[in-house]
Design a protein around this nucleic acid. Sequence first.
DNA 1: CATGTTCTTGCATGTTTATGCATCTTTTGT
DNA 2: ACAAAAGATGCATAAACATGCAAGAACATG
Lengths: 255, 255
Amino acid sequence: MLTDERLDAIRQLLSENGKVLANDLAAKFGVSDDTVRRDLRELARLGHCRRVYGGALLPAPDTGSLSVRTTDRADQKARLATATAALVRNGQTIFIDASSTNLAIAQALPKDLTLMIVTNAPAIATALSKNPKHTIMVLGGLYDQSKGACLGLQTIREAEQIFADMFILGACGIDTALGVTALDASEAEIKRAMIARSSLLTIAATTDKLSTIAPFKLADAARIDHLVLEAGAADPEPYRRLDVEVHLVTTDGVP
Amino acid sequence: MLTDERLDAIRQLLSENGKVLANDLAAKFGVSDDTVRRDLRELARLGHCRRVYGGALLPAPDTGSLSVRTTDRADQKARLATATAALVRNGQTIFIDASSTNLAIAQALPKDLTLMIVTNAPAIATALSKNPKHTIMVLGGLYDQSKGACLGLQTIREAEQIFADMFILGACGIDTALGVTALDASEAEIKRAMIARSSLLTIAATTDKLSTIAPFKLADAARIDHLVLEAGAADPEPYRRLDVEVHLVTTDGVP
DNA sequence: CATGTTCTTGCATGTTTATGCATCTTTTGT
DNA sequence: ACAAAAGATGCATAAACATGCAAGAACATG
């Protein structure tokens, strides 16, 4: 077996499983442990993996400006993300806009489903793990560096040409009475356009988003179809009365 | 057996099995190892295979996403990037397409200049350090996960609405006689569109790009305005005779 | 047909690369 | 803290490689 062929195979296994064990590789390829270690060293040098004791793992993805916020409350977000990603069905077209929670959701999307993912957040496009079943469409236009998303007229026009089954909205504020709100006018525009062109509206909200009210209204609370919350964060009843399907995620630490 | 007949046969075997072994080919065709190596060298030059120790493999299906390739030869790229970024003038509109070198260039762009940066690579948009003097425009469309860029018709249409002062092209192959080439048809399309809508064409090339020839032609070598190379990588004279301004970057490591 | 040129090929040469082994150091789990 | 597993490092070797050269075939030209 050729050296580079082996390197390719290891890369492949890595992207499939996220990790490889040096022993397994040596047995699999019929070479010595030393050779495998050399291979892993080389791959690590090229940035294709991080070496760890016993094998190697995929490198931590670098996802740009959204990533700074990503480390915040990472555990809760991961749980919210998993629960939200589970709402997606095979064959759907999904709008995802910019937010650190949505970045986590994008990464948690089931890899075995055929999906069309439409986003105005470049970081979300780059963060999606390479997956031939996912078609990714980027909405272009003027890029707002502070929001990490494309906003503005051109972006809205592009969004208007697409109808999605679900919009996963990165909300700024949610209130039973006052509805879903955004902090910024241009942000609000594109979100409204996406809401108008989606069958289902899904919001995953960390606790701080509830009872917050931002200046620009996006939609009534009743427009929400799925609301994913941390358990104990808020009373789900008012939402349920509005016909919102509320999903509670347990946020307890280790039992 | 004719030489070209042999080359065809090797191409055939390659596309069937994904790899060929030099020894096997020599035995199969009844020629010496040297001849086979010469054949493989030629096929590699034409971009039909990648030579590896012991034989050859099909061209890298994907050498990894943009962020992964970034760490590759980071030191040289940083030097190339600085030199290339210095070619940009205040007030210019710049096309930057996807490549790891271009990612480095984007990060090295002078922060005190007012610039309009247009890119089809989401990773480049997110990587640009937050800077109020830089206006960033993302070209949307279908996102090619292996290339880390938006390709396809919609992206081209968006690019066609913009005229830039300079295009910083992430090239796949450069040859004095055969010009600038790309590995992939869809990639080639968008690059051609950008070339057609830019006054100046700038290419920063690591050594491996020179004398490489990929299947799809983008432009004649004479179309290049600025070519940034590592010193000693290639003879700049042929390019200078074509009226290309060649900038050499010293790549000496630690003394 | 004669002659000069180009192209291909194989061989000899010196160099580089991949690999396994032995030895020593580091990390990990108990 | 200690033993076992994993890793690093240096070395030896065989295979693969590049390069220059020469013989021969194919080709062009007069």
